[in-house]
Computed example of a mutant assay.
Amino acid sequence: MTSTQVRTTVAELAHADGPFVSLYLDTSGQSADTARQVELRWRAARRRLADDGAPEDLLDQIEPLTTRSHPDGDTLVVLADATGVRVARQLPDAPPREVARYGPVPHLLPLLRWDQRQLPVLVVATDRTGAELVAMRPDGDEITESVTGETLHITRSHPGGWSQRRFQQRAEDRWEANATLVADRLADLVDELRPRVIVVTGDVRAVQFLRDKAPSRVADLLHEVQGAYDTTDAAVEQAVEVVRRLADADVAEAVDAYQRERGQADRATGGASDTLATLARHQVATLMLVDDPDLLERPAYAGDRPDQVGTTSAEVNALGATDPVRASLGDVATRAALAGGAQVLSVPADLADQVPDGIGAILRYTT
């Protein structure tokens, strides 16, 4: 999950005035000289930013973040403007490519690409006495709790004779009572946190009791993992993979919906010019951008307002802008979408043929 030091949202940055420093610095490595390698990468990135016109005092504010970035994660993300550092986050995965740019529009898509795979999730490791619960939220915060029930006569005994069934039934009753306590607490957390999935592991019988006792809004979210995942730490690791698969499935489902709308000539558009035009009219519900730099780095233009966008400066002038600036298509479209309250989805390159020209949108309404 992520670690956030400065809590400015990407939506807030979409409304901010530029220019912006956008830094995605590779801080990965396991060798003894990793810190030195990170320092060298930052020096090279700082030179590029300075060459682009970034103020030295702003770069001075960013530098301390780079010196302590290892070993907190494998990517340091810094977004800054004239007011200072607006976002500083450490991500656990190395960046597919480093970014260090200073320009009129913030480069938000790599961060959004990471965030779209960070769904809220509950992890449960349960046994006959209760459960350990971990709630993981997309902002990186975690909540850890223990639910402990009655332990008396919790183990089935085998005394023989007439008492055997009585002891076994008492154990079953305790297990069920403890499962009810866990299910009740899970219901509270589901109502509070709205998780996408509950990853559960542990004693097979305890898991079954939990399923039986959970209300439907909890039971419908349960995803059981067994095998080596019988502790919360191991289950959390497995939960990360479960969430990633769900997030990828969400993107694929959205692409399918986009294709259906296009097939009906209904609430969808594709291509740079048409998509930017719908962004300018605040029609977009979901913006789709294919993860391909060759497509997203094509030039586009923007005005002072985020909704003043187009593929040419003349198109932006027609929207009332007096001095359009040139920026990458992906950045211009992302800022306009976020400022207009639209969702932004990064589409993997293997689905590129489903989104013509690398950019498209599902619309709120048609004109």
Rank of each mutant, 00 (worst) to 15 (best):
Q343E: 15
T129M: 14
L109N: 05
R89Y: 13
A94Y: 11
L296V: 07
Q90G: 15
G202W: 04
D274S: 08
T75Q: 12
Q264G: 01
L49P: 09
D307Q: 09
Q90P: 07
H70M: 05
L363Y: 02
Y301Q: 07
V255D: 02
A187T: 01
V6N: 05
H70E: 10
Q308V: 01
R97D: 15
G330D: 01
D357H: 07
D191C: 00
L276E: 00
R113L: 06
P159K: 11
E176L: 10
G18Q: 05
I198E: 01
G330I: 01
G84A: 08
A300E: 05
A254G: 06
A247K: 09
S22F: 07
V240R: 12
A179C: 04
L189Q: 02
V316L: 02
R156F: 10
D115H: 07
A80H: 10
R262E: 08
L289Y: 01
A35E: 15
T4M: 10
R196N: 10
V105N: 04
D212P: 03
G310M: 04
L40E: 14
A125D: 14
R174E: 07
W114I: 09
V78K: 12
A277P: 00
A239Y: 01
R113T: 09
D60G: 13
T4L: 11
Q168V: 11
V78T: 11
H153G: 12
A45I: 10
